[in-house]
């Protein structure tokens, strides 16, 4: 709810800025000005619907997904790893214990297997 308030504020500001811009500025039409900027040379025609980009970026995206997923699992694990103690030192909730440690080691090792594979197969090298 408070986030919504802030979002409205920020969004209102941003949209206002974008909306007001055409009216505040002058208008001086110039063909070259409206071309895509390529340091002065004729702009490269871009395919309609978006160009193609190097596969490299896709691989990065894939890797990101994989590791992001790892993080998804690490967070709850980290949070519930330790026993939760109240103000008086009383244990409110017990931690997951050694079991969690063992499992997480296994998990990370498994992820590292894939990581090692990608690394060795030059998946992490940029050109």
């Amino acid at each position: 709810m408070p986030i919504l308030v802030l979002a409205i504020l920020a969004g209102g500001f941003a949209i206002f800025s974008v909306a007001v811009a055409p009216f505040t500025g002058p208008k001086r039409w110039n063909r070259a000005k409206l071309d895509a900027y390529e340091c002065g040379i004729e702009p490269t025609p871009q395919p309609v619907g978006g160009g193609r980009f190097p596969l490299k970026y896709m691989i990065t995206a894939m890797l990101f997904i994989v590791f992001d997923i790892e993080i998804i699992f690490l967070y709850p694990w980290a949070v519930s790893f330790a026993p939760l103690k109240g103000a008086d030192g009383q244990v409110i909730a017990s931690g997951l214990g050694v079991f969690a440690l063992v499992e997480m080691v296994l998990f990370i090792v498994t992820v590292l297997v894939a990581y090692a594979y990608v690394w060795r197969r030059k998946g992490l090298d940029w050109d």
């Binding site: 896709m58 894939m62 997904i65 994989v66 992001d68 997923i69 998804i72 699992f73 709850p76």
Partner: peptide, 16 residues
């Protein structure tokens, strides 16, 4: 969570 994981894996394989 698990579904997200699976979906991610699916994305990886599928896009490939």
């Amino acid at each position: 969570f698990f579904v997200m994981v699976v979906a991610a894996a699916e994305v990886v394989v599928g896009l490939a």
